[in-house]
Design a protein around this nucleic acid. Structure first.
Lengths: 196, 196
DNA sequence: GTCTATAGTTTGATAGAC
DNA sequence: GTCTATCAAACTATAGAC
């Protein structure tokens, strides 16, 4: 693509570093080396590291929320939606080598200014809202078995489960802890329609 | 207590900083200020920051494992054990102001040397082992309801749940996300014996 | 928009007096 | 065991040439 601007490419590179090493664990010097540019040039695009943090999480919010509502539009049952949701976190984990940006930023929350923290909070709010809607759908289509708690509680529980599962898997540098951790929840889901 | 040595008191202070700010987010200068001592004096007790990290997680391992097996000796049912386990994480959260050291260290894993990472892995192994034993007990005393997965899967799931719930609550600086997230699991537990 | 050069802090760590 | 003094390295950020 012709118009792939430097700023966007820098964001991609910085996101990779934040998710593999952590936001505090890479410097402008690291980003400059990785990208093949000089430190000072990064400051042209993102005046401060706080600006970079804000741009990263803001872009992530929009991208992730779009994925969530794309799932909702495609999925047939609540179980389908939840399988796709868990798979987003599974893919983001990349065999235990990285975290999703949300878990990465949650871990490093003390480094951020208020604007970035507001973005992070909005991510959590939006996720809980989406999950609550899906669990409410589950109450009508009965595609999620098991002793059911209120949709809002189930939403918080699943969010905590996938984030904690990512943290465990990343610690062990392996996909296995993630798959083991989400397995009991997946057992509660009706199988996908084979005719679909 | 007369013999409360400086080294132990320093560990307490460093643990507090690691759990409220993160291990990378405090320096020897911060620790010196907080403790009321000079930077150089800390190096006398812990030559490098890596030594401090190792001492922190090692002490935490022993303390936490002792608490787990104390729970096992006291609890009547598997449900009692699991309630006490969740309460350990709930108390450690301190209304959203801090993480347990394990979640804090998992978040910052890239900063540690191999020895410290080995301690961190041992913590996870020991936790999963203990939880697996409790879920196996649940298969016989039937104090945990719901669609049950193999004990090892349930163990990984609950570990991920409490760690993820802590991360959410810490992000929001509130106890509520934790309580909401663990609520569906607590609903599966038989109530404690009121005659106990 | 990217560069060289550098300012000004802070970091973890050490030497040596007391 | 704690102190003062200092180190080299890394950090974020800025100034100014091209």
């Amino acid at each position: 693509m012709v118009g792939m601007d430097t700023k966007t490419a820098l964001l991609d590179c910085a996101e990779h570093l934040a998710r593999t090493r952590g936001f505090d664990a890479f410097s402008y010097a690291d980003l400059a080396d990785e990208f093949g540019i000089r430190k000072a040039s990064i400051h042209y695009h993102f005046a401060t590291k706080a600006d970079l943090a804000g741009a990263l999480i803001d872009r992530y919010n929009h991208r992730f929320l779009a994925q969530l509502y794309a799932i909702m539009d495609t999925g047939q049952t609540a179980a389908d939606d939840l399988r796709a949701y868990i798979d987003l976190y599974r893919e983001a984990l990349d065999r235990g080598t990285r975290l999703c940006l949300c878990v990465s930023f949650s871990s490093a929350r003390d480094s951020f200014d208020d604007a970035t923290l507001a973005h992070l909070n909005r991510f959590h709010d939006d996720s809980v809202t989406w999950l609550t809607q899906v669990f409410e759908k589950a109450e009508t289509d009965a595609s999620v078995q098991g002793p059911s708690a209120p949709a809002r509680e189930e939403a918080h529980a699943l969010l905590a489960l996938v984030e904690g599962a990512q943290l465990s898997a990343r610690t062990r540098q392996s996909q296995d802890p993630f798959d083991l951790a989400v397995s009991p929840f997946l057992r509660r889901l009706s199988p996908p329609n084979p005719l679909q």
